[in-house]
Write a protein that binds this DNA or RNA. Sequence first.
DNA 1: CGTATCTTTGAAGGTAGTCAAGGACCGTGG
DNA 2: CCACGGTCCTTGACTACCTTCAAAGATACG
Lengths: 256, 256
Amino acid sequence: MKFEDYPAPVYPPRCAHPCEECGLRRSPAFLAVSAAELDAIQSFRSGTRVVEAGGRIVGEDRPSAQLYTLYSGWAFRYKTLSDGRRQILSFLLPGDFIGLQDEFADGHTHGVEAVTGTTLCTFERDTLWDLFHTQPKLGYHITWLAAREEKLVDDNLVTAGRRNAGERVAMLLMHLYRRAERAGMVRDGWAEFPFNQQHIADALGLSLVHTNKTLRRLQRLGLYKLDSGWLRILEPHALEALGDYFERPMLPAPLI
Amino acid sequence: MKFEDYPAPVYPPRCAHPCEECGLRRSPAFLAVSAAELDAIQSFRSGTRVVEAGGRIVGEDRPSAQLYTLYSGWAFRYKTLSDGRRQILSFLLPGDFIGLQDEFADGHTHGVEAVTGTTLCTFERDTLWDLFHTQPKLGYHITWLAAREEKLVDDNLVTAGRRNAGERVAMLLMHLYRRAERAGMVRDGWAEFPFNQQHIADALGLSLVHTNKTLRRLQRLGLYKLDSGWLRILEPHALEALGDYFERPMLPAPLI
DNA sequence: CGTATCTTTGAAGGTAGTCAAGGACCGTGG
DNA sequence: CCACGGTCCTTGACTACCTTCAAAGATACG
């Protein structure tokens, strides 16, 4: 059974309803929660926020007072050096938790930017400990999310450090496709792909020009198609082999 | 007051004593804990393990059944591609928690290797949830550690993706010196530096040869000295400016 | 003293960065 | 309707940073 068959909301206009009606939760990508936990999440949640495409979710200069769960849309975490060079650390999809890294900040924060229009559930940072205290299970889940997020960055570091341009692009395309698939953002083999080549370059640690040339090369080889914001993988095995990157089936994730 | 003034054990032969006598805890780098928490940690701990220099702490093929706190020595986390290219993800110092990333594994694990001889406190993975349940505060602390660890990898990703060789080396030297200082491994301005150039190359995503040439260049410029396993920073401001990397004062960390 | 490991250096080649400019597409407004 | 500016994509030419290959020192150790 594919995720497309589930009524997962791709871009709900807004999430103003109670958590128990949350559309995301119907997806099998997320763990079921008890009624008590859902209550705790509901009261942990302080509101909803909408950010337009290209807008800033969290500024790079200081940690935000809020934590977020991305409810719909695509976003990314990034850091910039003082001369403007930017590195994208990881991409964020619905269900991803935002802001944990800064919870224990010694400065050195990162920014979060929306790629598409996004909606977010907001939580107040200073109530986090209370959540751990009253609902240890949810604390455990948050640790789960933090650990998963770090694994993503681990993989990206291997890519930036040890893969060449072709391998990097192959790995990123497969990775984003798989995550989109899991999040129910694939229809008929086409995945939402709202990124421009500057995003890809900044994620892979390549220049814009070289990213373009590498993308075109792999496209001419017939490995994938990209059409007005939608991605289709034509040769998944070739891309996986080229990138030396083989996704394992993903476990259901907690959703806070 | 400098950390050197504290009686922090640099390389205790072994940690077989109860946690309340733990030498690490005397360091101001770590948060104080209550007696009840210390009891919980003590009963969470299942034993002690010693790994010789260069030995494998956690294999790359499968998640280990144990979690660890590094008690003494230096180690690193790494991943290797199928053709042998290796990327070091982060370095580990006393107090660092090991194995969390695999707690929620979907495969895709990483290895951990000892640089020097190390001693580790061991915990059984399947008792982690129990710890969260009975001691939410410690669960919160574990999340703290996970978030800090991810920030380290974030920084390393920026380095591998967007810094050139000189900047990478400058940043790594400053970073390791600062962490050694905090861990009480600096004496008279000399920090323990047990790494060979292959370690540095694998951490920075550079080739061994180019790493060597870059190290020599910065050394000839008089920015640092390296002598039989000990590092002295001669020009901290120059190195920080070159690497565009400015450490903020670090908060006391939890110690599990 | 011989072997293994690590460091150092030179030379050659290639991958990726930089510079520059044209093209495609889109929305806006004259 | 078409001109215009903006953003993003594409391509070529040139440059340079970094990798690879090769081999010679240095150091430690049995």
